[in-house]
Design a binder for these strands. Sequence first.
DNA 1: CGGGTGGTTGAATGAAATCAACTATGGTGG
DNA 2: CCACCATAGTTGATTTCATTCAACCACCCG
Lengths: 242, 242
Amino acid sequence: MAMPNAFVNKLRGYAPLDRSDVEALEAACQNARRYPPGYDLIREGDEPSVVFVILEGWACRYKMLPDGGRQIIAFMMPGDCCDVHVAVLSEMDHGIATLTTAKVATIPRPQMEALTDARHGLTKAFWWTQLVDEGVLRATIVSLGRRTTMERIAHLLCELYFRMRNIGLTDDGPCEMPFTQIVLADAVGLTPVHTNRVIKKLRSAGALEVTPGSLIISDISTLAHIAGFDDNYLHRRLKRSA
Amino acid sequence: MAMPNAFVNKLRGYAPLDRSDVEALEAACQNARRYPPGYDLIREGDEPSVVFVILEGWACRYKMLPDGGRQIIAFMMPGDCCDVHVAVLSEMDHGIATLTTAKVATIPRPQMEALTDARHGLTKAFWWTQLVDEGVLRATIVSLGRRTTMERIAHLLCELYFRMRNIGLTDDGPCEMPFTQIVLADAVGLTPVHTNRVIKKLRSAGALEVTPGSLIISDISTLAHIAGFDDNYLHRRLKRSA
DNA sequence: CGGGTGGTTGAATGAAATCAACTATGGTGG
DNA sequence: CCACCATAGTTGATTTCATTCAACCACCCG
């Protein structure tokens, strides 16, 4: 059997899937297409009819403000999908756009229902992803509300680092985050220039390096120390009885 | 039949429930107890085993920081419940505490599963509540990240106002929010003194009044105007085909 | 070679935190 | 009953932090 796709890979970490579950998932992702960076997969106000699954590359949920500002709400990386049940809503309250060129599959609602009906393992895995996604949103709120800008940026980078590790996208070595400082600023609620100054400090602490178009985490432990990072909200531990 | 409880009431707004659904929900809430203000229903790190349902009063999700600061992540009011599937997690990543004296029911996991298994209407209503809750979290992120403090406070108050209206807890008249400025400050990520100064401005704009222990919204339209409030994320519109 | 994007730095302005009082209120115990 | 204390709200002065505005560099790409 070929290497399973990122979606299958991630879900398998959350609940045991049998061969038929995996085959059904693989089949549902067959229609994947490739999109350029900055492509709007869906916009605020659109009617959602499919579930997006990121197979390669990065994307983000975002919301634009009247004054032209943008707030990035969450990052999506390979294996991530938008809410399994979005399609019950009549209108998106935010947009989803690619950050890099990305390969993404779309699963229409009826097919999604067919996937979960009578597949207990898959259903449970989806619950789990949803609970983790909510935990990430809550952690973001805590960062924006109560952490210093330094902790905030360090915390976000730690989160992304550990999420990448969980899906095998990085190992102990340096880890490249494929987005600009502008994008980071839109995620942490700061101006690009102040973001740059904070990055400068993190760089001189030896935690980071910078290249045009991406950040490279060179020392995750100092970064985690600065952030006061605790990965409990990513919920990697399984409950035995479940 | 007696007046249905707040939980039933809210869920009925999201999907048609038949008589047996309603009876099952009512039965599940029979064990409700009353708690004093400031009572921790569950703490970060605890193992979740039940779903909490707020029947009367207010509660909040929150997280404490190492320096003693608190970030309130979300407010819960009558009819709200915590994630239907929390019990699959081994550990809470945040706490839930009452803000006022509150009547809350606890539904153990097996009973929750019995409720959703084979009750399509209920299951769909739960999806919906979860999607709305996520929309609220995203809106909070946008507020904390990109809105001015004035917009931020006004926006939160608008949200709470419209959520109260949706469940019949207020009408066109003035609307009382039963929490202190300290609590509000913990929710919007500001200090109590700066929160107080912003409230002062909102008060002199005629939008608010203040009494010890609560805020009173006296003019929702100016408040909504200041906040640039759009209630789309509360998803009250149903999709026809769904 | 010229223009665009991403990154970097400096100086001035403005917003929020901090520190410090002080008021008003309600509840408790002497 | 009153003295006392704790809590909530309010205000002023000062300091810290982030934004704003402006410039400039480096690089890639046409």
